[in-house]
């Protein structure tokens, strides 16, 4: 009821020129696939999609994956209290409500009185304005690394110790053990993790809480762009079409994931 009806409504909206105000609000016309045709040709849409891909690649595929793995790997042999402290800190970033972390990061990177500027002694530097995407990527890496770290921790503890020791006896150095034993053993986990965090990041709306797509849409990833199009912009029909496109992309990613998993099994 709460899932299907809005989805069908979106599907319907995508086929109309429905608007919040004006003539099209009172009598929306069915325009068929016009919205979709327009969406594909629209430079703003393509830019938003490009930013989203950059966001996903930078913060999820590279950022969270790599940082999560590094944390899990280096915590393996750490003392119990170090491990507990780091894990708590990382988890905290993950479980805090989006509104809270959004404010934290606005304060952290603020031009006047921001924490980072205080640390770097660069007062007045507006990070969110000058490097909106870069800042978002750093933010989301920080925010979401916990999941990757936990998943990789579990995966690493399942790598048979005897295989690692076998490699050590053969004379394998640390990075050779990583390449020849660890990574091949956790390939499935890397794949699962990459897909899940990609999907989540692709759909993430938290950037809106921080930048609202500013400056001039330079930080508007696709979900933010759609929101801006629909509500302040009032073009509900067009936004519906974009939403459905996004849904399709999600579906394709999920399908690819299921197929790869099946082939492995």
């Amino acid at each position: 009821m709460f899932l299907i009806l809005p989805a069908l409504w979106t599907l319907y909206l995508g086929l109309t020129d429905y608007r919040l105000t004006g003539a099209a609000a009172a009598h929306p016309r069915i325009v068929g696939v016009d919205d979709y045709r327009q969406a594909l040709g629209d430079k703003d849409v393509r830019d938003a999609l490009g930013r989203t891909l950059l966001f996903v690649f930078g913060s999820a595929i590279v950022g969270q994956n790599l940082l999560g793995f590094l944390l899990a790997w280096s915590l393996r042999s750490a003392r119990a209290w170090v491990r507990a402290a780091v894990e708590t800190a990382v988890l905290l970033a993950w479980i805090l409500p989006g509104v809270v972390v959004a404010w934290l990061w606005i304060a952290f990177l603020k031009d006047q009185g921001g924490t980072l500027n205080a640390i770097l002694r660069t007062p007045g530097h507006d990070w969110w304005f000058e490097h909106p995407m870069g800042a978002l990527i750093v933010f989301n890496t920080w925010r979401g690394t916990a999941f990757s770290m936990m998943l990789f921790s579990a995966a690493l503890s399942n790598v048979p110790r005897s295989q690692l020791e076998s490699a050590r006896l053969a004379g394998a150095r640390g990075w050779q053990q990583l390449r020849d034993v660890v990574l091949p053993n956790i390939r499935g986990h890397i794949l699962t993790n990459t897909l899940l965090i990609s999907l989540w990041t692709f759909n993430d709306f938290t950037p809106y809480l921080i930048t609202k797509g500013e400056p001039h849409g330079a930080s508007a990833v696709l979900p933010v762009y759609i929101y801006l199009t629909a509500l302040p912009g009032g073009r509900l029909g067009f936004a519906g079409a974009l939403s459905l496109t996004m849904l399709l992309i999600n579906l394709l990613l999920a399908l690819a994931y299921v197929r790869i998993l099946r082939r492995r099994a």
Partner: peptide
């Protein structure tokens, strides 16, 4: 271990799958 010139066979064989 790698510099001792010894080889070991483990109970679970520890083959690389």
């Amino acid at each position: 271990p790698g510099d001792r010139d010894v080889a070991m066979v483990f109970q679970d064989y520890a083959l690389f799958p």
